[in-house]
């Protein structure tokens, strides 16, 4: 939550709302610096979300930070009816997004439905940063976006993906490499390092690969994605989320609507996962580097048949 400290220094309106999640969010530093700007609602996420709505009605910019699923599921209706509907300026930071984030805690703390749920709510912006540096930037970007924003975070132990100096531009895809037009790889969050490795393997096999990060799942950069689909003619999506409802669905909707090409989805295949270490889990649940490579080859082979 370093981004919040940066924001709060400059903007008196920034508030932190927690549901006994201060330690989990590693936000004790914020409270030391800004004690009167921290609201503790107790283990009561619905209450916390509705309190945040009240703060926003009065012109403050609250960040409600706790586990991704307790925001998007426990307080789902509060987000929809009391924040998104009146389009209030409340920001949400949800940790343990995906199965890797929740890892050894098990399904109660692994949240792979959050993006699918929020995508169906009007007015929401959904950001999926890939590492701590991007999370800080996403947090700062969120404060400047009017209306509700959800920042989907991992475990806080996610590998560093990007150089600290790399800018974060919400609403636009981030084309990371363009080494050919046989296949487009779209991904976000903790799946990005796997996507990069898969791209290397595909390149050694002689395929030309374009890799793009889609950190803003809503509003989706339809124009940018369609341009990549046109160029490559086939795509793989990779996300730590159910393959239903998240990035894969969003890109398939774009492809189906604007430029139909074969798309293969990598993600949790609509099952409840188990406890385990992050990399072990992603491999076991068919989100490995090899799974991405195979999906790419399959998508490429389907090009001529469409």
């Amino acid at each position: 939550m370093q981004g919040l400290d940066v924001l709060a220094e400059k903007d008196e309106r920034i508030m932190l709302v927690c549901a006994d999640s201060l330690l989990a969010m590693r936000a004790t530093g914020f409270v030391e610096k800004f004690p009167d700007r921290y609201i503790e609602a107790g283990i009561a996420e619905q209450n916390a979300a509705a309190i945040a709505a009240g703060l926003a009605i009065d012109g403050l910019i609250p960040f409600f930070a706790t586990y991704a699923g307790f925001i998007t599921m426990r307080a789902c209706e509060q987000l929809r009816t009391f924040v998104a509907y009146p389009n209030l300026n409340v920001k949400f930071a949800g940790v343990n997004g995906g199965i890797a984030g929740g890892e050894r805690e098990g399904v109660t703390h692994q949240f792979f439905e959050d993006i699918g749920i929020l995508r169906t709510m009007p007015n929401f912006t959904i950001l999926v940063p890939a590492d701590a540096g991007q999370a800080t930037k996403a947090c700062i970007a969120a404060a400047a976006i009017p209306g509700p924003v959800y920042i989907r975070l991992g475990s806080g132990r996610d590998p560093v993906v990007f150089d600290a100096g790399k800018p974060f531009v919400p609403g636009k895809i981030n084309v990371i490499s363009e080494k050919g037009n046989d296949i487009a790889l779209f991904g976000n969050g903790v799946m990005l390092p796997r996507l990069f490795k898969a791209a290397e393997i595909l390149e050694t096999k002689g395929f030309g690969v374009t890799v793009a990060e889609v950190h803003t799942v809503k509003p989706l950069d339809v124009e940018g994605i369609t341009a990549v689909l046109k160029k490559c003619g086939a795509a793989v999506t990779a996300e730590d989320h159910n393959i239903i409802g998240g990035l894969g669905s969003a890109i398939m909707e774009t492809a189906a609507g604007y430029y139909p090409v074969p798309v293969e989805r990598i993600g949790l295949r609509d099952v409840f996962p188990g406890s385990g270490l992050p990399d072990e889990l992603l491999d076991y649940y068919q989100m490995s580097v090899n799974d991405i490579v195979n999906a790419a080859i399959s998508a490429i082979s389907r090009k001529s048949k469409l």
């Binding site: 609201i39 209450n47 509705a50 309190i51 709505a53 009240g54 703060l55 009065d58 009391f82």
Partner: peptide, 13 residues
């Protein structure tokens, strides 16, 4: 939901 929202406004005030 009135009390929670009111709570936010009371804190803001």
């Amino acid at each position: 939901h009135g009390l929670s929202q009111g709570c936010g406004m009371a804190l803001a005030a």
